[in-house]
């Protein structure tokens, strides 16, 4: 079986536990204004305007697994594995199922990074072959969620509650953009909602990074919000104060904001809080 993959990164340290290989799958049902991978939204193979750089290539399950297998020794040493991300990996559901099944069969830890906007059955089917979901929660306010991502959040929250009740392990990842979804009320809502989840292992904040804007230009996509800014140190401190460090997790460290961008697989600087 084949699917469209736009990147495979090895040695990722921030897309789940340990050292990981992240497989970036093309296509996403959302259109987040802050999207760090705008070129991933279309399911089609695309070409950069100026550089002729191609985004996306058709790969078979076996080809992807060939890449994933290369770092097996590092997964076992670090508690890492494979992370299927995107875009939104559930957009290529059969391909994703085949990949998760293949990795699982080889004893590789499987994480799926998802925006949660997919039919419930997808998540039910994924349950037995996924060790960890990295679940994006972008905004608890339904109206603004629709405004910023193009879809309402009801289904996303519903799926998350389903995973929680089914006993799945998950980390919540929350992209925060100053002025859009980081008000005290937003943070409080996020805090209150996540407190009610029994199986959440971790809540990560992903401060906005304007990386996506450059990519928009490169692939001739028009950004929908141009004026977004990176959270300041004060913003980060405020996030921390709200989303108190949970036991065993270090708080977000503002100084790390200065680190060169793009180190993480997704372009997000993630903080465990």
């Amino acid at each position: 079986m084949n699917g469209v993959v736009f990147d495979i990164k090895r040695g990722c340290v921030k897309d789940g536990p340990g050292l990981r290989t992240s497989v970036f799958m093309k296509g996403c049902p959302l259109k987040c204004v802050w999207c760090h991978n705008p070129e991933s939204q279309s399911p089609a193979i695309q070409r950069a305007v100026a550089t002729d750089e191609v985004c996306g290539r058709e790969m078979s399950v076996e080809e992807v697994m060939g890449e994933v297998r290369r770092d097996k020794v590092f997964y076992s040493a670090s508690g890492g594995g494979a992370t299927f991300t995107g875009g939104e990996p559930t957009m290529q559901f059969d391909f994703l199922m085949a990949l998760c099944g293949a990795a699982k069969a080889e004893g590789i830890h499987v994480a799926v990074d998802t925006c949660g906007f997919a039919p419930r059955e997808c998540f039910a089917a994924l349950l037995p072959c996924v060790d960890l979901f990295l679940y994006d929660l972008k905004c608890m306010d339904a109206a603004r969620h629709l405004e910023f991502t193009g879809v309402p959040n009801g289904r996303i929250i519903g799926n998350l509650e389903f995973l929680d009740s089914a006993g799945a392990k998950f980390w919540i990842r929350c992209p925060l953009v100053p002025g859009l979804n980081d008000s005290d009320a937003d943070l409080a809502a996020l805090r209150d909602f996540t407190r009610g989840l029994r199986n959440m292992e971790k809540l990560e904040i992903c401060p906005y990074h304007p990386l996506g804007l450059e990519k928009c230009a490169k692939f001739g996509l028009s950004p929908r919000y141009a004026g977004m800014s990176q959270p300041t140190a004060a913003d980060l401190a405020r996030y921390n104060a709200f989303l108190r460090p949970r036991e065993g997790c270090a708080p977000a460290r503002p100084q790390a904001m200065n680190a060169p961008a793009g180190r993480t697989a997704t372009g997000k600087e993630c903080y465990a809080i």
């Binding site: 990147d7 990164k9 090895r10 040695g11 990722c12 050292l19 290989t21 290369r70 770092d71 590092f74 697989a265």
Partner: peptide, 8 residues
Amino acid sequence: RKDGALTA
């Protein structure tokens, strides 16, 4: 490698 992967 584009990602400079240390595992690679």
